[in-house]
Design a protein around this nucleic acid. Sequence first.
RNA 1: UCCGGCGUCGUCUAACGGCAGGACAAAGGACUUUGAAUCCUUGAAUCAUGGUUCGAAUCCAUGCGCCGGAACCA
Length: 552
Amino acid sequence: MHFIAEIVEDDLRTGKNGARLQTRFPPEPNGYLHIGHAKAIWINFTIAARAPFGACNLRLDDTNPATEEDRFVRSIQEDIRWLGYDVGKRVFFASDYFERLYECAQTLVRKGLAYVDSQSPEEIRDKRGNFYTPGQDSPYRTRSVEENLDLLARMRNGEFEEGQAVLRAKIDMTHPNMNMRDPLIYRIRKAHHHRTGDAWCIYPMYDFAHPLSDAFEGVTHSLCSLEFENHRPLYDWFIEAVGGFDPVPRQIEFARLNVTHTVLSKRKLQELVQLEKVSGWDDPRMPTLAGMRRRGYLPQSILAFIERTGVAKRDNMVEIELLEHQIREDLNREANRTMAVIDPVKVTITNMAEGEKHTFSIPVHPEYPERGTREVTLERELYIEREDYLESPPKKWFRLAPGQEVRLRGACFIRAVEARRDERGKLVELLCTWDPESKGGGTPDGRKVRGTLHWISKTDAISCEVHLYDRLFSEPEPESEDRSFLECLNPDSLQIRAEALCDRSLAQSPEGAVFQFERLGYFCVDRTSTPGRPVFNRTIGLRDSWAKIAQS
RNA sequence: UCCGGCGUCGUCUAACGGCAGGACAAAGGACUUUGAAUCCUUGAAUCAUGGUUCGAAUCCAUGCGCCGGAACCA
């Protein structure tokens, strides 16, 4: 049980808030959700579920019309649903509260706790002071309630231009926490809002809108990331200053998720999209939920990963290996086996007659025989992976080499006899012999072969396209200061293999279907697939202990 | 120089004054019709110094280090 759960359990036990429990997930609709958001989503929904009638609201925090778009509102809802959370009717918008927030602002003015400042943005910034020196009061700080009320109404009516006036809270210009030095409440923005259109020309700031929106909704625990820790005194101040709320929400901060070999800043993700380093927000290399979905990640894997990384207050950098481990663990269970050859080389079995065919059935999943079997055909012409044959192999090479015998997965033993190459030396065909005694994959004499290869016969094969994805960044910490994250991009993060072959049975596979291509990894059907030509995305490769042996 | 937060194996995370544990990663081995999966084994940590205590990762003090904070962004 993490520290937030402990606080909440404690509140529940002591009957705080009448044992009510409510949280909220408040994204700004200015980009796609990524795996860092998944952490916030998971925390907020699992915490809410700790009480019988606990609930988590989705609140789109749309207080800045300049950056927000309706398409992001839609993608956010889609991604939350995909993760497995049903917000039902609990979808709210900060913009729905604009009128009520305005009334709160008037209340503050009447209480003498807010004033209209007519200084320029530059003056306001200069007079805020800095970490070491206190700020100075605005000359407009002492305006009367009546004047402030009038000015605020005229701000709303559009009588001022952007930058000519703002509404500020009257707190303390010498406060050591700079957030408390008369923070802005409203600024003028003559911009079109994606939901309220042109109804407003003043928009509330986050520090004002956020705590009050929580209070309006009856949120009891407002969970956010560490960078808002400095804002908590202000969060509490606005709720107290407006007054009359029950329950009074409590803000608790946790450390956001960081993962090696990727970036999780919205600005950087946006840059990758804009600079076309990736194909879009849902590029399978992106850490966005849309990208991970297209990549073939299962939502339960993402959630399990987040649960395993924990919730605490120290800064963290989770190794991507933990995510990859989780994906493999789930996909190993979920994905049925089939065979595909990504870089095919033709094999001719010279001692098998033209037209001769043998059929074998192989379990669809070795650990779950109840899932049934698949049929493969063995015949004179077939294909194996080019890299599975080596003319002069290193030690411990179990695959094909001159004179060496291997097993074709689920079928029989073959032995390499001759390699045919073109004028440039490229392998074009392998002549092999098979042992008819080895049908099924073993022989009466009980001799062992160490290597088993995946393969596909000429009649079973259809052409397909395979997208081999790897980590987007080759550096473990592309966000570290020493260079631009763009310089850390992995040039081989995508390899397109248009010559690949896969089993006929995959021709009509629906988008998102997942498979293990034996010995290669886990793959899913991309949305660009067509019935005649499937396109597969590699979600993650199998662990490859040969790669380590080969290295040494 | 100010304010806030945080320091436990390489990484993430437990411990609520009483044997520093787990997971990933790493190394070695067994098994294997996927060099997969599975199984076994091993190495690996309390930022430092003082104090309180029978006993401190935990409480106190001091120091050091790291992160965040000076948008009319969220």
